[in-house]
Design a protein around this nucleic acid. Structure first.
Length: 139
DNA sequence: GCCAACGTTGGC
DNA sequence: GCCAACGTTGGC
């Protein structure tokens, strides 16, 4: 199983919105970046991801699961863009802030740190463990 | 609110 | 195919 990170600006689409969608989940649409799209194409059913709030909060706030593999993005007619569907699994006991991530040596190589603008990104097994650790939440 | 970094677009 | 111009993102 692979791990990922989904970034969202909470005023546009936040963790609470994601939770409200329940088991059905929701399209992670609106991505207009090739790198991010390519990662979504690689995602498999059951892959897990972190849900990250950008801007004001800058924290990982929860865990999501891929519940539909890549398909055309329903918010555009442009067939270049695809997306997966994700559903909320559980919230973090404690949100893990970007500051914490930056100061933890285990996470120094995270894409979140290296390329802060990429909105969908891969997370390694070790990074997954480390962040769940910091969030006092089971992986 | 500013601005640096990055990605995309379009003229040549 | 290059690169300047532009738009957007997101940390600070």
């Amino acid at each position: 199983m692979a791990y990922w990170l989904f970034k969202s600006e909470p005023n546009t689409w936040g963790w609470d919105d994601q939770v409200a969608k329940g088991e059905a989940g929701e399209e992670w649409d609106g991505v207009r970046n090739y790198q991010a799209r390519n990662f979504m194409r690689e995602m498999k059913l059951g892959d897990r991801g972190f849900f990250y709030h950008s801007m004001k909060e800058k924290s990982v706030v929860g865990i999501v699961e891929v519940c539909a593999e890549s398909h055309p993005d329903s918010t555009t007619d442009d067939d270049r863009w695809e997306c997966v569907n994700i559903k909320a699994v559980r919230a973090f006991e404690v949100p893990v802030s970007l500051d914490q991530i930056k100061t933890d040596p285990r996470l120094a190589e995270m894409v979140l740190v290296k390329n802060s603008r990429l909105s969908v990104q891969p997370v390694t097994d070790l990074e997954w463990q480390a962040i769940c650790d910091l969030g006092k939440t089971e992986p």
